[in-house]
Amino acid sequence: MVATTDTQTPTKTRRNPFRFIVVPLQVIGRGAGNVVGILYQSGRDTIDQVIRNVLPFMAFISFVIGVILATGVGNYIAQGLKPLAETLPGLLGLTLICALPFLSPLLGPGAVIAQIIGTLIGVEIGQHQVSPQYALPALFAINPQVGCDFIPVGLALGEAEPQTTEIGVPAVLMSRLITGPIATIIAYFASFGMYS
């Protein structure tokens, strides 16, 4: 069956006097249709993602920034944040708190805490309260807990055995206590010469 259809199709095309036009048109039409379809679907996915994940968070962050800038709460936050964000020991203290194995899974979800503290430090940098050089180490100091809430799910996505998850969760949490401060120290030294 397959063999006969294979031999029949070329003879049919050969008999067709317009095959020089028809075949390229087919190829171009199908190809263009595919590519446009892919691009359109990509656009649709993008808009979905922006509406569902990006804009809601922007609305929420805008409100937080509005409260900080318009009420003067920012001055109190600056007093609390400045010693933490402007010295290496302060940054390391912040890192260690966020990396504590029983706190890190609580601080993790959606990176909400990291995003809020990041925004607060950003506002303080913008108001000359914290010098811009500390932006880089701060990015690591506020984030040693990244993904600590998500370890079982992340491992399941990687098709890990239940036993791997049992060992993996404490392994990652403990690893963060070591690598969190290391990351902040590396970032601190890597920030030399930036914005100065």
């Binding site: 993602q49 990006v54 962050i61 959606g110 990041g118 506002v123």
Partner: peptide
């Protein structure tokens, strides 16, 4: 990771405010 962009963009906004 557009849903968590403010980890970076929050701090970056301060740098932009300074005109750097």
């Amino acid at each position: 990771n557009p849903g968590e962009i403010f980890v970076y963009a929050g701090i970056a906004a301060g740098i932009t405010t300074l005109g750097l």
